[in-house]
Amino acid sequence: MLEYLKTGLVLMAITLVAGFALSLIYELVKEPIAEAELQEKLQAIRTVLKDYATSEPIMNEDKIPSDSESLDRFTWDPEGFVAEAGVIYTSPSIRGAVYSPVYRFELPDNGQVFVLVGESQGYGGPVSIVSSFIVRDGEVILNGIEVIEYAQETPGLGANISYDEVKERFYPVERSGLQAGLKVDKDAGVSPTTDTELMNRRRREEGIIQTSDVMTGATITANAVINALNLMYEFLSEAGVLQ
């Protein structure tokens, strides 16, 4: 009995020392971790706040948040939505989540920009994106996306999502395309085209995203991005900002 007690105590002592050391390090790295994650988010927000056509910032450069305080000022609380465990919206029909908080920026010309962070399931894990929707004069347009989490996607296939030439295939989309629901060309039953004008028209008006030529036929990751975007659009229309 005494022996058992002794071995138990030794093991307990080792675990306690380990736990103590770890909690010290945890305190030490807590800030760098939060900082690294915040910087990534801020960078992504800066990216999606660029105009899709001109690549210039759509609002005054010095108004774009650069730290957590200035970012918090743009937090938007839509009525009737309660954030739970960092998630503000999920849908029964689309897999994924829209994270809380949601950001809203006012444009000088009465327009509003909604910047949303959300995720859906990719090939090996979650794919997270940041997107911007511009609402102006009763029109809505998907202005830009940035992919912040795609680490578990396959290099050379799904992970191509990080290239600008691939991300550019997802925007801009107008209301008719968003309402029809975004889908990849394979699922829409159209064959990929080299005619840029046709490709852009299909996307803007019908929501058909052509990725099969730039992602070597991989659709799972593209679909994850599309699911997240459709979910975000559904959230915005339920929040009543799209009338």
């Binding site: 736990g19 909690s23 390090i25």
Partner: peptide
């Protein structure tokens, strides 16, 4: 609120 103990606890 001690998520960092996860690996140790799980493996034990």
């Amino acid at each position: 609120d001690i998520p960092f103990m996860r690996t140790i606890v799980f493996i034990l």
